[in-house]
Nucleic acid binder design. Structure first.
Lengths: 328, 328
DNA sequence: CTGAAAGCGCTTACAG
DNA sequence: CTGAAAGCGCTTACAG
């Protein structure tokens, strides 16, 4: 491999001068600069980032820890992160926990050893161990997906989104509104969205009916099952269903169709996430776009701000957009 | 930051010994080993990968260059890569060209400067400049998505997949089979899939009708437009349409429905890619699953084989799976 | 079994 | 405007 020393030798200068040319730092005569650049070009010399990082303590790499890449939300967020970071010449070191929370901690350590300049975590939980590890860490850190206490977090406004979509149904005259949620251990998606639903009911003095509230997994099948449970359990049937993800809504839609119920005239239905799917099911799904690319980009910007200006805000909520389509 | 030197000092040994403990290399007495491990644990010491990489010329990082993360295929492939590499303690340094071919070359250089141990490229084209850059490079390299001459490539069997799906329609009695393809500059998706279609026609002595062959972009809208063109241009209408992606097929499906044509009884329709969408449109789409996670994993394995055994096969074709659903 | 020393490829104060 | 030298944090042949 051709090194800086080699370039210096060929150009009859010291490596200090080569370094100055490369970094545009300090004075170098035009003459010498040109000579060096020519040689760099001819040899195809590429400086070693490891040596550079070792010296400067800066790697221009940001670690990203994510639970699963093959979900639309995750890939939209990572895309947002990657575009924003690329603008500032940062690269992403990607680690994928495949939903194993133990790996989150392992990867935090790994990324530290790789000496990334910062870490962005797409969090699914708010585990104590993780928090400890982050606090031990002396690396700028941004969480997204979940708010993590004491850690700069970029999150969606899940509470208001759920509340608004519930209100929308209430305005349309629905009073029997069912809810398909997920485990509240997922604080943002499980707890906050449910809280938004409950808040809207309460404000409108609608009763909370336990049989109309189901807990599901993140799959279409689970949405189907949840809708079935709701319709089997209750003597009075709901006229609307709010699902906390599009996939759950689509599962519910399958069940409803199977029962010969029309969406939306018999039962209105909403999802959340603005997935690709939501546009192409029939009827098209009313949903909420959480602008995930934007969430990712904002997480990246937050991290860059910490890196460059030392400014560290605690919490940033990203706006969402309600998308009204044919399912209500 | 606590360094190896510091650990050595605290343990009253030399850093050489600490290094030996860390790497399980050479002899270290149990006594000393325990003492060192204890101190490492207490201090939370994490070795610097940059220093290590500088010394050993090995980083345990694989560079991945992709055109766009937010497509289902790309994220499935990257997921496959990431899972396979994780098994072998390699991490991914992710670079995203956002479909800018100039960036492919730029990122090849960047990844070299980051001294990744190898590079996996999800290629969309087979540009000459890129090939030159790769050849200049002295880093193990695997391409996927496109076969790149002289470079180990893991690709899908696009020709046979397209041929098989065409044959399937022919067996069903279709003789007027239209084709919605993409630019043949995308050799695998544009050229090979079209070639497979043409080969099936030829083998069955069916005529190639130019009006039945449309070129589209990678969007649902473009599939709609292409189907419209086909139906407007030709006096004799096709009874089946083969689209080279699911999104194109879904666009075509929208057009057909709009025209009051029933899928599959009036016009049969097939896609390729086994996207999530394909399962949830009505009728469900007959398509081809290219097993993208598997493609990614195989690309990773190919790279690891080069890295670990120096074995470098030229070309590997991944199997596909035909998924027959209701659209034919 | 352990240590002293060299060296990986850079950057950067310091001196001239 | 340029160079000599130190040092970043590791590993590894060599010596004992």
């Amino acid at each position: 491999m051709v090194t800086m020393k080699e370039i210096a030798r060929l150009a009859n200068v010291s490596s200090a001068t080569v370094s100055r040319v490369l970094n545009n730092s300090g004075y170098v005569s035009d003459d010498v600069r040109k000579r060096i650049l020519k040689i760099i070009d001819e040899t195809g010399y590429i400086p070693s980032e490891h040596a550079k990082a070792l010296r400067t303590k800066q790697s221009n790499v940001i670690g990203v820890i994510l639970p699963k890449l093959s979900t639309e939300t995750a890939s939209r967020i990572v895309n947002g992160i990657s575009e924003e970071l690329a603008k500032h010449s940062y690269q992403i070191l990607l680690t994928n926990t495949n939903l194993d929370p133990k790996k989150e901690i392992e990867y935090v350590k790994l990324l530290k050893s790789k000496q990334v300049d910062g870490i962005i975590l797409l969090a699914t939980n708010r585990g104590e161990d993780l928090l400890n590890e982050i606090n031990k860490l002396q690396i700028p850190f941004v969480a997204t997906g979940q708010e993590i206490e004491g850690v700069p977090s970029v999150i969606n406004n899940n509470f208001h989104a759920a509340k608004e979509i519930t209100n929308l149904l209430i305005e349309k005259g629905h009073r029997n509104i069912a809810f398909i949620g997920v485990d509240e251990a997922d604080y943002e998606v499980g707890h906050k969205r449910k809280a938004g639903y409950l808040a809207a009911l309460e404000e409108n003095q609608l009763p909370v009916v336990d049989e109309w509230i189901a807990k599901a997994e993140f799959t279409i099948e689970s949405g189907y099952t949840a809708a079935k449970e709701i319709f089997n359990a209750s003597s009075e049937k709901p006229t609307a269903i709010i699902a906390v993800t599009d996939r759950l809504a689509i599962g519910a839609m399958e069940y409803l169709k199977e029962q010969g119920l029309n969406v939306p005239s018999d039962v209105a239905l909403t999802g959340m996430g603005a997935s690709d799917l939501s546009k192409y099911v029939h009827p098209k799904l009313t949903t909420i776009d959480f602008l995930s690319e934007h969430t990712g980009a904002e997480a990246a910007r937050t991290l860059l701000r910490i890196l460059q200006e030392g400014i560290s805000l605690e919490k940033k909520q990203i706006d969402y957009r309600l998308i009204i389509r044919d399912s209500i």
